[in-house]
Amino acid sequence: MGGNVEILLTEGAIVTQDEDRRIIKNQDVFIKDGKIELIGKNLRENADLKINCRGKVIIPGLINLHTHSPMTLLRGYADDMLLENWLKEKIWPIESNLKAKDVYYGALLACIEMVKSGTTSFLDMYFFMDEVAKACKEVGIRGFLSPGILEFGTPEVKDVQDQMKMSKEFIDKWRGDELITPVLGPHSIYACSKDTLLEIKHISEEKDALINIHVSETRKEVVDSEKKFGMRPVEYLDGIGRMLKWLTTRLAT
């Protein structure tokens, strides 16, 4: 459904998310050009689509801050494992066989599911990210998309320098798009060297781009970081040229 479609939601309970977190009951919402135009009772605006929301709530769009959207294809493939074993023994080997079209269809399924459950924006990291962007545009969902950068390569690009070059090209291609926000995506401190992280930090400054990275996902990662660097992962990143300034998400235990 295009952004120019006029929509009238009627008789719903609006969860405002204003400072007082008000809930306004039995209200109508008129949406025009993709934006809320009017809120009130018994609105008479003509709309292309009318939805009666009696007994339902009308909420702002949800935001998912950690996704690998094409991995919908891998549901049930490997469960109940330690993260390191899960990645090295199961996920990374099978991902090495994925092609661009696989990523597109996995992302398309994820985008459809997110929209159906009220998510309107998501922060993603994977490879073949032009395919994920294509899925976002087709469904009409906002994607903050980061091509994954790993020292040992991805199914799309093996050399880490080529990955960073591709990430810069991805930023240039999608910057300013209505739905797509390009983001840099170093996988983690255990999959990227200090030199790689420093270069990514410089790219983020050059391109004014955010960085999406996994941090402190498990106790083992924290312990390993303390042994290797003498500090916890967040402290380590903060010591790399004040890298935390550019980070969009951290997964702490």
Rank of each mutant, 00 (worst) to 15 (best):
A13C: 07
E95Q: 06
T72F: 02
V29L: 15
I189F: 06
L8S: 01
V215A: 01
T253D: 11
N97Y: 15
V15N: 00
E37Y: 10
D20H: 14
T67R: 01
T249I: 06
S193N: 04
Y104C: 07
P93H: 11
I91N: 10
G55A: 08
I112E: 11
N212P: 00
C53D: 02
E178I: 11
M166D: 13
Q17A: 15
A47M: 09
V222P: 01
N97R: 12
E11N: 15
G3E: 14
P182W: 12
D79M: 03
L83R: 05
F122K: 05
R142I: 01
I180L: 05
S188F: 04
R232S: 00
E131R: 11
T248G: 10
L62R: 03
S167H: 06
G40A: 06
F128W: 12
D162P: 01
N97H: 14
H66P: 00
V15I: 08
G153S: 06
L62A: 09
E178F: 09
P93S: 12
M81H: 15
L9P: 05
Y104F: 14
K207Q: 11
P70I: 01
L210M: 11
L8N: 03
V132R: 03
T16V: 07
L83T: 02
V223I: 10
K207F: 08
K101Q: 11
I23W: 12
L87C: 03
K56A: 03
D124H: 13
R44Q: 10
I180V: 12
A100E: 15
T119V: 04
R232P: 00
I7S: 12
K245Q: 13
D195Q: 09
T16G: 07
P155G: 00
V183Q: 02
N52Y: 01
S69K: 06
I149N: 04
G40C: 08
D224F: 07
L108Y: 08
F229T: 09
F152A: 11
V115F: 01
D33T: 13
L150N: 02
K173Y: 02
G34C: 12
I94M: 13
L197E: 04
F229P: 05
V157K: 05
L49I: 07
K165N: 08
D172P: 11
P182M: 13
I51R: 13
R250P: 02
D177E: 07
M164R: 08
I63R: 00
I7Y: 10
M243L: 15
V103I: 15
K32F: 10
A133G: 08
H66W: 00
L49N: 01
T10A: 09
G12T: 12
D102V: 14
V223T: 02
D238R: 10
M129P: 04
M231Q: 13
V5C: 10
C111H: 15
D130S: 08
D20N: 14
D124S: 13
G40R: 10
H214C: 07
D102C: 14
K25R: 14
I31C: 04
K56R: 09
